[in-house]
């Protein structure tokens, strides 16, 4: 009888630890953000993400585009239709970027 209680307590303990682990993992890995490129614009033009977040740009336009940081922090290759580029922001700040083929296309990633 005492052994069964001990086993139950052990199972509960393991379950709580597992829940804490999952919660901690969820906190340490921020959700990914996707910015779409369509009709010569970045949507959303201003993306707010936490430090450590990975931002993915997906080109849904019919023609190629690039994603280039104004401060040369990141630079994608030429993205053909339906190609993606991802960058992980490890420091806080405001990162402005543009398409080097169509410099009128601009956007910002605000890392908090």
């Amino acid at each position: 009888m005492k052994g069964r209680h001990m086993r139950t307590i052990l199972y509960i303990g393991v379950l709580i630890a597992a829940c804490c682990g999952v919660a901690a993992a969820a906190q340490s890995k921020p959700a990914a953000t996707e910015i779409t490129i369509d009709n010569f614009s970045f949507t959303p033009p201003d993306a707010k993400v936490p430090v450590g977040a990975t931002v993915t740009w997906a080109n849904h336009d019919d023609i190629p585009h690039t994603v280039v940081s104004t401060d040369k922090v990141f630079k994608s290759k030429v993205l053909d239709s339906d190609e993606k580029y991802a960058y992980t922001f490890s420091t806080a700040g405001t990162f402005t970027y543009f398409c080097s083929i169509h410099p009128k296309m601009t956007g910002r990633v605000i890392v908090q």
Binding site: D62, I63, P64, K77, V78, D80, I101
Partner: peptide, 12 residues
């Protein structure tokens, strides 16, 4: 240079 020799398709 600008398109890095991307294989052309569609409008391009």
């Amino acid at each position: 240079w600008a398109l890095e020799g991307l294989p052309l398709k569609g409008v391009l």
